[in-house]
Design a binder for these strands. Structure first.
Lengths: 349, 349
DNA sequence: CTGAAAGCGCTTACAG
DNA sequence: CTGAAAGCGCTTACAG
């Protein structure tokens, strides 16, 4: 771990100027140095293991070469996929990814300033999850650097990238209807969150499309976690009449819902079909394996990186779709993964 | 998003020198400027929203103020917990966390160089998982900056932080024995991986401690994923005699093992008890809820940050325990979480 | 076409 | 004690 070689070390050793080394190594096409000189420079650089110093470049170019990603909870498999997509895209673009945690940034102003205000990143991706503090923080970040919300509608004037949640919900409910279900309940996430609203819209759309009515007592929204799903399912199982199928707006919530059905002695899928939006590796191994609708969460991360890097994430002009409704990533489309938690309703088998 | 204010902007506005502003804002105790001057500087800085430029500081101080963390798979709940711990500790220390992906770094030399060779980070944490490429990459990184392996034994002379895997395994098997089991099988991870070896040692230790013999046909090691757990369980269920309990070295593997038992019509825990090392939120909601042994994975990440920041992670002196056997984080100790997948063996109920 | 010089925004040893 | 100056390692407009 000796001192890292600098450009001037290479220059000295190759007996040319620092400027020339910089130009040659950066592939400047206007360089006309003799081929053997160029080769020597490359050789010396390789020999010394020269690597441009990131901070020096960043300072000189006023470009950090890094992107920030803020998520709410790494352990959430949905967030993990977003991280993975962003991470891969950033790396492919020669950028480095800085990971941060939304609750922490909300609690620690220094941490927020450190991430957003010091020029360490050229752009910020913020995974939206409808928390109260999100709006203010995101708006503050957007004032300082290109920012894009991920998996959320636009908030506080900040452009957003989202998935086709409505289509995903529609597809899921359509599946239940095709199986013969007419009594389909809805379990959402946090009330008022845009994700739950859009999925609810898809649920309602599919029901209406088949002349099925929406029953308020079959609609329950609590929170984006498994305990909430547990409570929601318990509530639905007590409803009269009881639905024969439940559409759950989120796979994490569905894990809790499934557990509640099991504890209540209600067999899934025999007595109750359950389907959820988003896939996670472990639900394929559950009892029963959960039928889900997969959305391209990794592309969401990747696309956010692209936008940031292409400069489209700057202060959006009024009327820009990204800031108005959010850019919807409709490709690849939602995909139905039929597993063991859905089947025909009891009377129809 | 106008140009960020620099120290000289603050200096001009406060009518003092740049040096003095720097000293005042950094809390230099030798500063004797008039209190009102100091206050004015602070006010102007706040007014302008001054934040020191990260790259400039990094260049000047030859310190990036950032740490790198390399993991093998973000979607793995075990890795997620390590990330969380490292992330929180880094933030608390005023450092920023750079996340990268081991398989990607193995495949993309530029990405590796970008992360390790450009001075962007002051230290690197590498989550070990026994991949072939790990050794070379980690050794290469360690030649360039302070590096510490996380959740692994030392490799290639690089110091390591690990958990008390043997104690965790021992505790798990001990639990099975206390329930009355005498026929206990072992499902590991990738053969030869140090994690599986240490957990196997705990398994063997607990058995021997109770004068139970270790049967080779009840020991199966495949891979660290759910399909491997599935295959391993299928193999054990075909064994003659069949074990009454299975200790699984990893919760992800256990998810697959549980599914295999279910598919084979073997009731857990009635006909077969299953216990695993490491906890994950979703296994508490499974059927049955999985009994696990929790280890402080988040502390592993946090402790790695501490070591890197305290400078103890430099080139280790020969005979250093961190490089010889690895530092074991024994506190808090492994914790048994008894849930629904373990019970007394059939004959004893 | 190539080299010397300026300058990105800091920190700090040094001179006054 | 405070200010001016140097310098961290780059890139690039400018002069030769």
């Amino acid at each position: 771990m000796s001192r890292r070689p600098s450009l001037s070390d290479v220059a000295k050793r190759a007996e040319v100027s620092v400027s020339l080394v910089s130009r040659i190594l950066s592939g400047d096409a206007t360089v006309r140095a003799r081929p053997e000189t160029q080769q020597r420079v490359h050789e010396v650089a390789a020999e010394l293991g020269y690597q441009p110093h990131g901070a020096a470049r960043a300072l000189r170019l006023s470009r950090a070469g890094a992107l920030g990603l803020v998520v709410h909870e790494v352990s959430n498999p949905i967030h993990a996929e977003i991280i993975r997509g962003a991470q891969a895209a950033a790396t492919a673009a020669g950028q480095v990814l800085l990971l941060s945690d939304a609750p922490e940034l909300a609690a620690n102003a220094d941490a927020f300033a450190q991430l957003v205000g010091t020029g360490r990143i050229d752009g910020l991706m913020w995974q939206g999850s409808g928390e109260d503090y999100d709006d203010e923080l995101v708006a503050r970040a957007a004032r300082q650097l290109p920012t894009v919300l991920v998996n959320s509608r636009p908030r506080a004037g900040v452009p957003a990238l989202r998935l086709d949640d409505e289509a995903a919900a529609w597809l899921a409910v359509e599946h239940l209807i095709e199986l013969g279900h007419r009594h389909i309940a809805y379990v959402g996430g946090r009330p008022g969150a845009d994700l739950t609203e859009r999925r609810y819209a898809g649920y309602v759309g599919a029901l209406r499309d088949h002349d099925l009515s929406v029953r308020p007592e079959w609609t329950v929204e609590r929170e984006w976690d498994a305990p909430a799903g547990h409570a929601a399912m318990a509530q639905l199982l007590a409803a009269d009449p009881r639905p024969t199928a439940v559409f759950v707006a989120n796979v994490v919530v569905a894990v809790g819902a499934l557990a509640a059905a099991r504890e209540a002695g209600v067999a899934v899928p025999e007595q109750l079909s359950v389907i959820a939006v988003h896939d996670a590796w472990f639900v394929a191994h559950g009892a029963p394996p959960l039928t889900t609708v997969r959305l391209p969460l990794d592309r969401l991360g990747a696309e956010a990186v692209q936008r940031l890097l292409s400069g489209e994430a700057g202060p959006a002009p009024a009327g820009d779709p990204a800031t108005e409704r959010g850019i919807v990533l409709a490709d690849p489309p939602p995909k139905l993964l039929v597993r063991g938690s859905t089947t025909r309703p009891e009377g129809m088998r």
